[in-house]
């Protein structure tokens, strides 16, 4: 078990299994399948758990993101990113929380803040957890996030 102290961007508590992306997380590319087709019969089956849809992200491609503690360095790609995160959260298709090893980027921050101000289900978001956090955490490890941004990994 190890603890890491980060900065709460959207404070809250959360407990969820880890899902780790070591490279930049492309929000649009990752969520586009789940958001567009997750509710479709047959073709939507592969996206029921918000499976990662970014072909360039080998860590997450095809893995369920719904309800996971998404551990990542930063998000990258299209500036629809924050809006996509906001939609995913409002529609109940988002990870349980987002945990950034680096300082949060502008797109992810937008998604987190929009969810906090404009929905009744803010997504717990912590940044500045450090590279050691991303090196230590592995898929499936139990993550507990405290209100003050302390993240326990076990």
């Amino acid at each position: 078990m190890k603890q890491f102290k980060g900065r709460p961007v959207v404070a809250g508590t959360c407990e969820a299994p880890a899902l780790v992306s070591h490279g930049g997380f492309n929000t649009l590319a990752s969520f586009q399948g789940a958001l567009q087709f997750g509710d479709f019969p047959i073709i939507g089956n592969k996206y029921k758990q918000t499976e990662g849809d970014d072909q360039n992200n080998k860590d997450l491609f095809g893995k369920p993101m719904l309800g996971k503690a998404l551990c990542l360095p930063q998000t990258i790609g299209s500036t629809t990113g924050g809006m996509v995160l906001y939609c995913a959260n409002a529609m109940g298709k988002a990870p349980a929380c987002m945990l950034f090893s680096e300082h949060i980027d502008s797109l992810a921050a937008a998604g987190a803040v929009l969810s906090a101000v404009w929905t009744d289900k803010p997504m717990v978001t912590v940044d500045c957890l450090g590279q050691e956090f991303l090196d230590y955490v592995k898929d499936g490890m139990k993550i507990t996030v405290a209100e003050d941004g302390t993240v326990t990994v076990e």
Partner: peptide, 9 residues
Amino acid sequence: CNRNSGIIE
């Protein structure tokens, strides 16, 4: 200009 997200802009 920052890399603003959709809606924020």
